[in-house]
């Protein structure tokens, strides 16, 4: 595991930035985060000399646009998020680590997520040490991590009304073709209900970028989202 020991100390930006390191740890406990990173290390390397594996290396991840490496083959879904302007700030990293699919539906990162806020804080504190100027990364921007991705169990448990979903869906099919291929606008039929619901709520809460979808989801109630999930989920 490359991120241990010498690789860690050799990381350029860190040298002489003792204070920064001190601040960086305040998001969480970086040492504990290093241990939790073992869950990621099967796919990701970090530290000096880190290279892409199953996932891209994670040096300098903070405040970089998502999916930036030309020499790594990302999913179409995360590339779309980059084109939409998504940046790996604290809030988006936190959301992605909590539930990767809520933020990026078709992500190739096959990882269930870290459900404990403390675990995420600690991993983030650890990751932050490998970004060029940790001292410039805001510890707690006013809005940082205010918007939860995780949904209350009651919200996920709503059984959508199929007929209402059919009516509501008419607003969506102006853009989303039923039974088409990806042609600039993603296909949204046949999804597992939960994936659909978390994605819509992530737009509604404006964690996912994209003004059209933020606006469309923004006025849907929990019941309406469930109804749409039921309707589109049953297609194809």
């Amino acid at each position: 595991m490359r991120w241990l020991g010498a690789a860690f100390l050799g990381w350029g930006a860190l040298i002489g930035a003792a204070r920064a390191e001190e601040e960086a740890t305040r998001i969480g406990d970086a040492e504990r985060g290093a241990e939790i990173f073992a869950k990621c290390a099967g796919c990701h390397e970090i530290g000096q000399g880190a290279v892409h594996r199953v996932g891209p290396h994670l040096n300098g991840i903070f405040d970089r646009k998502v999916a930036q490496f030309h020499d790594f083959r990302y999913s179409e879904s995360i590339e779309r998020a980059r084109r939409d302007g998504m940046v790996w700030d604290l809030e988006h990293l936190d959301a992605y680590l909590e539930n990767p699919k809520a933020l990026v539906s078709g992500t190739r990162m096959n990882f269930p997520g870290l459900k404990e806020q403390r675990d995420r804080n600690d991993v983030l504190a650890f990751l932050r040490q490998f970004s060029a100027s940790p001292q410039d990364i805001p510890e707690a921007a006013p809005t940082a991590r205010k918007r939860e991705v995780e949904l209350a169990p009651e919200v996920l448990a709503i059984i959508g009304d199929h007929e209402y979903g059919a009516y509501l869906s008419t607003e969506c099919t102006t853009c989303h073709q039923i039974g088409g291929d990806y042609d600039g606008i993603p296909v949204i039929t046949g999804w597992p209900s939960e994936d659909f619901v978390v994605a819509m709520h992530a737009y509604k809460r404006q964690i996912r970028p994209h003004p059209v979808m933020q606006m469309m989801a923004g006025r849907l109630s929990d019941e309406e989202i469930a109804a749409l999930a039921a309707y589109f989920g049953a297609l194809e």
Partner: peptide, 23 residues
């Protein structure tokens, strides 16, 4: 806005055209 976003916006409009005409 950067060029990549503008391109994505254009590509989205192509998707919309296909969507609305089949609708």
């Amino acid at each position: 806005e950067d060029a990549e976003l503008r391109q994505a916006t254009y590509e989205e409009s192509i998707g919309w055209y296909a969507g609305i005409t089949s609708d």
